[in-house]
């Protein structure tokens, strides 16, 4: 059995292939989706999307909040933006993380603090997506 996975953003289609399994971050925690999953609607939180390909390889993508719908072995994920792990430059992501940490320590005021925390979280997720090691099985 397979799952049809679509990851759509206003800019382009990020993913449009059959997969074996995905692990998705939702607003109420991470969920794993295998074939014949119950129909479900969920809001997607900022976080990684793990994709297990048909050849048992794992890929990582990064989602920035959105919506996911799982019906009849078809997964539609809508988000404002998304990135495949392979498209992220590790050095650039690491630098962005360090810059975000520096900005957080320098932030003054509530608004700046909230923005700095969000930027830091975003940078951290991107770094994790690049450095993630898939489970061996």
């Amino acid at each position: 059995m397979k799952l049809n996975l679509y990851v759509l953003t206003p800019k382009r289609i990020i993913w449009d292939c059959e997969v074996k399994e995905i692990i998705l971050s939702t607003n109420s925690g991470q969920i794993g989706v295998l074939p014949n999953h119950a129909p479900i609607n969920t809001a997607v939180d900022m976080g990684p999307l793990r994709i297990r390909l048909l050849n048992d390889q794992w890929l990582t993508a990064v989602l920035w909040s959105g919506f996911a719908r799982i019906v009849n072995n078809e997964i539609i994920i809508l988000g404002n933006d998304a990135e495949l792990g392979s498209d992220i430059d590790p050095e650039e992501a690491q630098q962005a993380l360090e810059i975000a940490e520096a900005n957080l320590s320098k932030a003054e005021g509530t608004k700046e603090l909230v923005e700095a925390k969000l930027a830091l979280r975003r940078a951290r997720i991107r770094v994790e997506a690049v450095n993630w090691i898939p489970p061996s099985n």
Binding site: T26, N27, S28, I31, A38, P39, I40, N41, T42, A43, R69, V71, N72
Partner: peptide
Amino acid sequence: SPVVQFEQ
């Protein structure tokens, strides 16, 4: 469409 659960 089938009956869909809501995660939230």
